[in-house]
């Protein structure tokens, strides 16, 4: 069990690191293509396409890590106004709702992925790029996000501080 937890945390951070690397790649790809163009060469079309796909990869691969970091912005209005005990209940219920949303999207993501593989779907840009190479990030990302939100349902720490916005 301990190893499963470690492997899970490892996966979460590895894909977040991939998201960070993608951000750097955005910079590099733009600079390379501008340099090529201005040297009178024609920039590789994949530099451009990789940046477009990079946005999706970056967002989805990094999103679970951001749940752990409590980086997804929320508005503390009701939760801040509530007494402590009730706030705890509401906070856990909201986290539970987030789990459900992510699970639904993860499940539909699996279906979409399987459909893309079965239909041999392509994303049509300068290249024909297999669609499943894009859609596999949905079940992965929403699945891990569901787990991360579940921690705010069952573990000690709450998603809502109640403090920052206590007088709102």
């Amino acid at each position: 069990m301990k190893y499963v937890a470690q492997a899970y945390t490892g996966l979460l951070y590895v894909i977040a690191a991939l998201a960070a690397a993608t951000l750097i790649w955005l910079m590099i790809s733009v600079i390379l293509s501008v340099l090529m163009r201005n040297l009178g060469l024609q920039p590789f079309a994949w530099l451009f396409t990789s940046a477009q796909y990079g946005i999706l990869y970056m967002t989805m691969l990094g999103a679970p890590w951001l749940v752990r970091e409590k980086g997804h912005v929320h508005i503390e209005l009701v939760t801040a106004a509530l007494p402590r005990t009730i706030r705890q209940v509401v906070s856990r219920l909201v986290a539970m709702a987030c789990v459900i949303v992510c699970l639904i999207l993860a499940w539909k993501g699996v279906e979409l992925l399987l459909t893309n593989i079965e239909r041999r779907d392509f994303d049509v840009r300068p290249y024909y790029y297999p669609r499943w190479l894009l859609t596999f990030v949905f079940p992965l990302s929403f699945g891990l996000m569901a787990i991360e939100f579940a921690r705010f349902v069952f573990e000690r720490e709450l998603m809502h501080s109640g403090e920052a916005g206590i007088h709102e």
Binding site: V30, Q52, G54, I55
Partner: peptide
């Protein structure tokens, strides 16, 4: 419809117009 939702999200998040923002942040 929910599968379509994911497809639509894929379309919205693979746009070159979104490239500059993370770089300005950086």
């Amino acid at each position: 419809g929910i599968g379509q939702l994911l497809n639509n999200g894929l379309g919205s998040l693979t746009k070159y117009a979104l490239v500059p923002i993370p770089l300005f942040l950086l």
